[in-house]
Write a protein that binds this DNA or RNA. Structure first.
Lengths: 335, 335
DNA sequence: CACATGTGCGCAACCGATTGTTCATCGCCG
DNA sequence: CGGCGATGAACAATCGGTTGCGCACATGTG
């Protein structure tokens, strides 16, 4: 609550001297006695530098905006953890926000960044934000890093090695002897989903297995979508013996639907999903998953943004270490 | 990016006139022509008032700190939704933060509030923050509203009607004919858990049913705790026919453990839990729950903090409307 | 015509911290 | 003893916006 002026008064010096004494600037010529006196006064008065004043002076708000579509999402907590960790290391705060589709969204970003509430943003795109909408919201003036998403004509992204994760899952099934493998993919308009499907196809192809169109279903990323996709899938004349699901929540939805359809997992059908949560572990049967380095994703995105604010150029990064990790549980078994 | 000065220059007036013209102050004596000119210049230059400067001037950061123990928690997403909604209505931002136990935690709050990063905080206490720790962290100087928690010697809290929610759940079981009912409670040191257990006892008592000590187990709030509690409970000589679980995640954990123990739900045991999530709906069997007004909780807490910042006194509020809502699914059935 | 009133606008202080520059003083050396 | 450099501290501008006050001029009134 005490201002620098009050500390200065208490120490009997000017504001500037107080500032230099406390900042510990080596080039500042302050006598040891004065420095001591100022520091004691600051201590006594419980002085904390006013962040608002510093923000104005340095034209830096000291905060990043984290824009996420859905806090409920399984991946969010871990992602946020990484972001928070990194932000804390450099004394930045994380401002949580949501944005609407354009044109409102652009205004919101302008308010956020233009007004200086935040210095830059980390943006995890919404499912219904296609490339065009996203591009329309992100003007070049906004320092932004896209999380697990990428735009053609915009640099600045950190994405998981989605293909590797899905390939790992798919190979796991192949190693178990499965050949008739289906894929519950995300949204066609979403690059993450595209990359994941490519990983699936690559693994199948390198094992010499065909990708059957009827066994590839758009499921979205949530439980409901996974359940719906399973219902469609199970109408096919010939059925797969194993299933790769691009998202853990959809995977849970799939398990739930399968159970209600009377399809036994893993006896009749093996299921593996991408991303790991406590629900996967708790389900009956426990869901085999591929754990993706979400925390690292958050850290790296945050780091890139900070570095960019310090002048470094934005880049496009794929997180390859730590590598996706297969966690075998009860939902997969040899054919 | 353009400053007020630049707008003023473009319009050929002084900063003060530009400020008044744009703020729309009725008492300001500005000619219509000048006002028009300034507004057009602002439009043209894409002027957005610098939030940092305003923050300094008004000694208001325009942000609230939302401090939550665990973003992963089922209740968090909805709570946050309510907070965000309210904050957006008054153009405030929500800064997400975590705090450590004292003494570190107190320093963090000082930095957050004392330095003016946020104007006040909303605090959902961590399980391991007992009253003493919480009190040690919250100095009187910090405008804070406790969410779903309450301290004896500190005013400023918004809590759910926990007792009513648990009573509703308990009565549901009683109405189904159950008389041997157990309770998986939260943490003894947590006032929310205490209120919920009181709700359980009240419902039992008013139906003339005994509360058996062996059927009351501390489960915590997460799946693991619920599962462990079930294992302890099922060692009892006589077993209950129904179970009230104080938290939905613990409820899911309980269902999972019961399934592995071979106890059929709802044939052998009915289960109902507090709070509703998609996992409850998706589980097999779908979990009967009591939906609590978490969004309202967030809104009200946020509102109270804002009002307090405007000068209103803090109070202690219990949210009674909307009332807890029983959502009957497949985990409960008549005895 | 003189004076009171009103109108439109600019000056300058302020919020709190940082920092380039200036100023006064002291000691040292020639 | 005069001049010089080093030292320690204060002055003042700055970040961008807000606002009390005063100034100049136009209009209205007696």
């Amino acid at each position: 609550m005490a201002s620098l002026q009050e500390v200065a008064d208490a120490a009997g010096v000017s504001r500037s001297v107080a500032s230099r004494a406390l900042s510990g600037d080596a080039r500042a010529r302050i006598s040891a006695a004065t420095r001591e006196r100022v520091q004691r006064a600051a201590e006594l008065l419980d002085y904390v530098p006013n962040h608002r004043a510093q923000a104005l002076r340095f034209a830096r708000s000291g905060a990043v905006g984290l824009i996420v579509p859905d806090v409920n999402n399984a991946v969010f907590a871990e992602l946020l953890g990484g972001v928070q960790d990194r932000a804390r290391e450099v004394s930045m705060s994380v401002l949580l926000s949501q944005i609407d589709p354009p044109p409102t969204g652009r205004e919101q970003l302008r308010e956020l960044v233009g007004a200086g509430r935040v210095d830059g943003i980390l943006l995890q795109r919404r499912e219904d934000f296609d490339d065009r909408k996203l591009g329309a919201v992100l003007t070049k003036a906004v320092p932004a890093v896209l999380i697990n998403s990428k735009l053609e004509d915009r640099v600045g992204s950190v994405v998981l090695d989605d293909a590797a994760g899905v390939s790992l899952a798919t190979r796991h099934l192949i190693d178990l002897g499965h050949t008739r493998i289906g894929h519950l993919a995300g949204f066609a308009a979403h690059d993450t989903a595209v990359r994941r499907h490519q990983g699936f196809c690559a693994a199948m192809e390198s094992a010499g297995l065909p990708v059957r169109r009827a066994w590839v279903q758009r499921s979205g990323w949530e439980a409901r979508g996974g359940a719906d996709a399973v219902h469609r899938l199970m109408k096919a004349r010939t059925k797969p013996t194993a299933l790769v699901v691009s998202s853990v929540n959809a995977g849970i939805g799939a398990l739930s639907a399968l159970s209600r359809l009377g399809v036994r997992v893993p006896e009749d059908l093996s299921v593996v999903a991408i991303n790991d949560t406590w629900v996967a572990e708790t389900w009956t049967p426990p869901l085999t998953t591929v754990r993706m380095p979400l925390r690292t994703l958050g850290r790296r995105a945050c780091s890139m943004l900070f570095d960019h604010l310090e002048g470094a150029p934005l880049t496009d990064v794929v997180i390859t270490t730590p590598a996706p990790e297969l966690i075998v549980r009860g939902s997969t078994r040899p054919l």
